[in-house]
Design a protein around this nucleic acid. Structure first.
Lengths: 113, 113
DNA sequence: CCGGATCCTTAAAGATACTG
DNA sequence: CAGTATCTTTAAGGATCCGG
């Protein structure tokens, strides 16, 4: 998404389907694998794993595996990951303010067709 | 992209590949079809048409066809479309400030593997 | 010049089953 | 619990040709 900014063309995984939602789930503190899987209902373990690995690589979150039985793994936002909340909130604020207009425009178009 | 905000789940075409870039291209004023195609180098007419139609439906821009020969069509941002520049700029600002950290984290990960 | 129509490729995501 | 492995699906995007 942020690749729309001309001088920046690196492919950051933010505009994909899950990254922003995962950040939201981690906003209040560290969460375990299944604690993420539940609110992100429908996400398969494969896709969740892929998303978390990519975010870990990009320094957005940390993965901590505890050597216990049963195993326990916790994911936590880094400062970098947390910094993304700011532009995300800007987007949410836009939605709150303008999404009704957009829906209305879309409905009007459908009515006209 | 902005669908990450919990109470908002409507599928707005912002996080896709072209919408944000088209808005940037229209930021300075109305543009013709081919004037958009050039800076968005590589976009095919089909995809550009699809994107513009979707944005028109959502009230982000207007399409004005002049009955001339050769034909001329101009696209221009609406106020609603222009309002998206604000959250987009927030994203760009994040990129300017934090993208180097992300790139560094990614490079460090690759080096460790 | 501005696209519509058709076909094709590919990457993200989902379904399902299985394991340390 | 926290994944891995494999297969299938799907929708975005691209290539190409055609028409008003």
């Amino acid at each position: 998404m942020f690749t729309g900014c001309p001088p920046v063309a690196a492919p950051i995984r933010i505009g994909d389907k899950w990254t922003a939602k995962i950040i939201r789930c981690l906003e209040q503190g560290p969460r375990r694998f299944t604690e993420l899987q539940t609110p992100l209902r429908g996400i398969t373990p494969k896709v969740l794993t892929e998303s978390l690995r990519a975010m870990e690589r990009d320094g957005l979150l940390t993965r901590t595996a505890y050597q216990e039985i049963p195993p326990r793994v916790e994911y936590e936002l880094t400062d970098l990951g947390r910094s993304l909340l700011e532009p995300m909130n800007a987007g949410c604020e836009w939605s709150r303010r303008h999404l009704p207009e957009l829906i209305a425009a879309r409905d009007a178009w459908h009515a006209a067709s």
